[in-house]
């Protein structure tokens, strides 16, 4: 897999999930450094030490960047802190929602915009996002790229200028 910004091989792969949209980043060492993304192979030794000294709070206790609520707190109150919590706690969200909705795992029906076509588009994009997730997890980057292309096509709205997924 090549770097997003040049033709060198990418050594950093990240999947960013925000507001239900998955975005992948693949960067070579130069562009990773430029973007400030830590490169696992080239971290200065003192930075590595601090990382070891202070395990990231994320792995210890998932915390929502949107509202600062932890998964433990969400579970305790049975309340999310903000809309972003839904993606932040991924699997935890799925477990909580499905448990309180007797197994239902997908929204059906009206959404913003409200038209039938829009609902069908959302359904398809949801399916693709899940497929992409699986492909990335299985490190099938070529398949992921194909799905990404389909998603981009789907997200290309007739008039909006958003760059989609």
């Amino acid at each position: 897999m090549k770097c997003d910004r040049c033709n060198k091989p990418a050594i950093v792969h990240q999947v960013i999930i925000k507001n239900g949209e998955h975005r992948e980043i693949h960067l070579c060492s130069t562009h990773a450094a430029e973007a400030g993304v830590p490169n696992p192979g080239q971290q200065p030794i003192n930075k590595l030490m601090t990382t070891i000294g202070q395990p990231s709070t994320r792995s210890a206790m998932p915390t929502c960047p949107g509202c600062g609520t932890t998964l433990t707190q969400v579970r305790k109150d049975a309340l999310f802190g903000c809309p972003e919590c839904y993606d932040t706690f991924g699997r935890g969200t799925a477990i909580m929602v499905e448990r309180s909705q007797s197994g239902a795992a997908h929204h059906v029906g009206r959404g913003p915009g409200g038209s039938e076509q829009e609902a069908a588009r959302r359904f398809e994009s949801r399916r693709l996002v899940e497929e992409l997730d699986q492909a990335v997890r299985a490190e099938q980057y070529e398949r992921a790229a194909e799905i990404k292309a389909k998603l981009a096509e789907l997200a290309e709205p007739p008039s909006s200028g958003e760059d989609g997924l």
Binding site: T93, V97, A105, G109, V129
Partner: peptide, 21 residues
């Protein structure tokens, strides 16, 4: 206004018992 909406979970509510529709 613009409601909080998630592709998979629908209209987002504080409590998981209200999400979706």
């Amino acid at each position: 206004v613009g409601w909080a909406f998630h592709e998979r979970w629908g209209y987002q509510s504080a409590c998981p018992t209200n999400t979706g529709t």
